[in-house]
């Protein structure tokens, strides 16, 4: 099984070192001091880019110290790659400054939009999958990679609605984007599961239809359960709970297809003590080790 390096796919720019194929944790201010005090053996940390787009102060103080001896992924949540309008060049400039400062092993963003008409909605909003959106998303990713001088990973979204204007399956759409731009795929297994329940798809078939050779990182998170107007299950990408058993199962399946991958535990709400997250990151490493063992035996 190949462990494709997405950076290889980008047609320009120097490839930075990749994240290790280990468990990582989303870095939260609640855990800064604990991490500096205990120096836990974590494969990598990931931060949301926008939180560090400030001049100085505690956030940079801690990130600099923590990043010094741990690989780092910078994950943007505000670029609005799926938006109607042109990319926010000022925001791209801020990203460039941040990436130059921390030299992260990975940079990723979302297949979603969040800004329109000058307003920022602070949510990852869905777009129809059709030729128009495809052209815009590809142009935006081309611009991002050109401006930042490196390849990016694009994350598959968790969505709650679909559009009548969609003419392509999400998997085909993502495959086209990856093929045209050379970007990699950030495979969010929880998003995948949430969307497949919400839109009544077969999660394993969906997974197989993605461009798995381009996967450069995997996300795992918890979700919340609700129901839609007809009483059918509707899952919310809430990041407020441990990774669900169904998502762990799907993750093991994904690893069997992609080989070991840098795997992030995301927790943005009801944040527990650090060791709770570290245990989930270890769980991901156990899944990957089990896979490696099976491969070796085969």
């Amino acid at each position: 099984m190949t462990n494709a390096n997405p950076h290889r796919l980008f047609r320009g720019g120097a490839a930075p070192a990749a994240l290790p194929a280990r468990g990582g944790i989303g870095l939260k201010p609640e855990h800064y001091q604990y991490i500096l005090d205990t120096r836990p053996a974590i494969g990598f940390f990931e931060v949301h880019a926008e939180n560090y787009m400030v001049a100085g102060g505690p956030f940079h103080h801690y990130l600099e110290r923590i990043r010094a001896d741990t690989p780092l992924s910078i994950h943007g949540v505000g670029l609005s790659i799926g938006g109607d309008g042109p990319l926010d060049e000022a925001h791209l400039d801020r990203l460039a400054v941040l990436l130059a400062r921390y030299r992260p092993e990975s940079f990723s963003e979302h297949l979603a939009w969040s800004s329109h008409g000058g307003a920022f909605f602070n949510d990852l909003l869905p777009a129809p999958y059709n030729a128009g959106t495809l052209a815009r998303v590809c142009a935006h990713i081309d611009r991002v990679q050109e401006r930042l001088g490196r390849s990016m990973l694009l994350e598959n979204p968790a969505t709650y609605v679909e559009f009548e204007a969609s003419t392509m399956a999400e998997t085909d759409f993502i495959s086209e984007v990856v093929g045209r731009t050379g970007c990699g795929l950030l495979l969010d297994v929880n998003n995948l599961y949430v969307s497949c329940i919400n839109h009544h798809r077969d999660a394993r078939a969906y997974l197989r239809a993605l461009p798995l050779a381009a996967v450069g990182e995997i996300h795992l998170a918890g979700h919340a359960r609700e129901v839609d107007a007809a009483g059918a299950p509707m899952l919310i990408d809430s990041h407020d709970a441990p990774v669900a058993r169904e998502v762990w199962d799907l993750y093991a399946y994904a690893i069997s297809l992609t080989g070991p991958q840098p795997t992030l535990i995301e927790r943005d709400n009801d944040i527990p003590e650090f060791p709770v997250l570290a245990a989930e990151a270890r769980q991901a490493e156990i899944v990957m080790a089990r896979h490696a063992k099976l491969e070796a035996a085969a």
């Binding site: 505000g78 602070n122 919310i236 990408d237 809430s238 407020d240 709970a241 943005d268 709400n269």
Partner: peptide, 8 residues
């Protein structure tokens, strides 16, 4: 900034 949807 984060990328969650609020639970519930």
């Amino acid at each position: 900034n984060d990328c969650k949807a609020g639970a519930g």
